[in-house]
Simulated assay, not measured.
Amino acid sequence: MVSVIGLFIAFTVFIIYAINRMTNRLCVQKEIPNERQPKVFRTINILILILLLSSYVEILYT
């Protein structure tokens, strides 16, 4: 159980880092103004966290 939690936390950190790098590239490529970038990052991060939490709950209860 503890190893699954540790593995999932490491996976989560990697996924969040990779998604944030891709979001930054998107903002640069689409020339999104600096004022809107925090909102874009916040929205994407919240959606990814919801996805990761739901997958963790699915793994935990199956």
Rank of each mutant, 00 (worst) to 15 (best):
M1G: 08
M1A: 15
V2E: 13
V2Y: 03
V2H: 03
S3E: 14
S3I: 02
S3A: 13
S3Q: 15
S3K: 07
S3M: 03
V4D: 10
V4H: 04
V4P: 00
I5T: 06
I5W: 05
I5R: 10
G6T: 02
G6Q: 14
G6E: 08
G6Y: 11
L7C: 03
L7Q: 05
L7Y: 04
L7I: 02
L7T: 12
F8N: 05
F8M: 07
F8Q: 01
I9D: 05
A10L: 15
A10P: 10
A10R: 12
F11T: 04
F11K: 11
F11D: 02
T12I: 12
T12Y: 11
V13S: 12
V13Y: 04
V13N: 04
F14E: 00
F14T: 08
I15N: 04
I16Q: 10
I16L: 15
I16N: 14
Y17N: 09
Y17R: 13
Y17M: 07
A18H: 07
A18C: 02
A18N: 03
I19N: 00
I19A: 06
I19K: 01
N20Q: 11
N20T: 01
R21D: 09
M22E: 13
T23M: 13
T23A: 03
T23L: 06
T23D: 00
N24C: 01
N24Q: 15
R25G: 15
L26E: 00
C27L: 12
C27P: 03
V28R: 14
V28A: 07
Q29C: 06
Q29P: 00
K30T: 13
E31G: 09
E31Y: 03
E31I: 03
I32S: 10
P33E: 08
N34G: 13
N34D: 08
N34C: 06
N34Q: 07
E35F: 11
E35D: 05
R36M: 15
R36Q: 12
Q37C: 06
Q37Y: 02
Q37I: 13
V40K: 05
V40L: 12
V40Q: 00
F41G: 01
F41M: 04
F41Y: 14
R42T: 12
R42K: 14
T43K: 09
T43E: 01
T43P: 00
T43L: 09
I44F: 09
I44L: 10
N45G: 08
N45M: 03
N45I: 02
I46R: 05
I48V: 14
L49H: 01
L49T: 14
L49M: 15
L49A: 14
L49D: 08
I50M: 15
L51N: 03
L51F: 15
L52Y: 00
L53V: 03
L53Y: 14
L53Q: 07
S54C: 11
S55V: 11
S55I: 12
S55F: 11
Y56R: 04
Y56H: 07
Y56T: 14
Y56W: 09
V57P: 07
V57F: 07
E58R: 09
E58M: 12
E58H: 04
I59N: 06
I59P: 02
I59L: 13
I59W: 08
L60P: 00
Y61W: 08
T62E: 10
T62V: 10
